[in-house]
Amino acid sequence: MSSTCDDPGLPGPGGASAASLTVQPFSPRRILERAVRGLLWLCAALAIAVTAGIVLSLLFEALRFFGKVPLTDFLFGLEWSPQTALRADQVGSSGAFGAVPVFTGTLLITGIAMAVAVPLGLLSAIYLAEYAHARVRQLVKPILEILAGVPTVVYGFFAALLIAPALRDAGSPFGIDISSESALAAGLVMGVMIIPFVSSLSDDVIHAVPNALREGSLGLGATKGETVRQVVLPAALPGIVGAVLLALSRAIGETMIVVMAAGLAAKLTANPFEAVTTVTVQIVTLLVGDQEFDSAKTLAAFALGLVLFLVTLSLNVVALHVVRRYREQYE
């Protein structure tokens, strides 16, 4: 140590005067530091600006839409045919903007997707977290996550090219008429895509259930399955609910699969073999291509976007809240 102090390049002890302990308030270094930190603050605040931008742009355009079409007609109307709005010279040129069939179509496809993803995802998570060898779990978990990493346009292509025709052919021998744009095809493929959203997060929360609970149950003579179903799953339930809500939000907002594999016509039906349309499909069809920006048809897309944003936002807020509460419980 002493040799370092003797080094002529370094100030020796006591070399600095007491005055150097204070820094001029306007020294260049201080100004630079403040400026950089201000800049950092601005960058963080950008996140709020983005949210505000989303809310304001959706709200602004949606309000213009509701100036043309009453809110109640939009939310409770049973007929959706925005295309007629193009023919300004015709009777009924204002189009029909009752979004209920669009909402039910979204629910139908989302429901099918969840019916695929929740059992498969949850059972996979249970198997990987409770039964599989640790090494198998480490290997299979990231492999399953690839399913969520494949671009949705790829799923859409598969749904439209392979799954939908296969379903149609499978239905015909039984006399079931399955549309080639059936809700089933889009829903099934979307379900496969969101398996990892359910399985990965559920696996995490199941893994976080304290081992003491498992041992308590096994020590009473419960089988592994009884322990999982009656002790581990109830303990992990809030986290699993959070995972399912996040997957649901993802399914509702999913666009490309439904654009490519679902229908365009809004039909009020619960039959999964028929073609239905969704909120995201309508947004895309209303906005892609040439458009006049003042027509009710174009603005309707923003009203749908606002609904989509609000619904997914509430799902996310609830899901994140539930998951965080759960983490606090066991950590």
């Binding site: 609970l213 009473l220 419960a222 109830p234 303990a235």
Partner: peptide, 26 residues
């Protein structure tokens, strides 16, 4: 075997169920 040989653990580990259900579980 474990039905005949009960076990109580170092840290109390009641199940996330009601008091009644905890005892009724076994």
């Amino acid at each position: 075997l474990r039905r005949r040989v009960g076990m109580v653990f170092q840290n109390p580990n009641p199940f996330p169920k009601s008091i009644f259900e905890n005892v009724a579980y076994g």
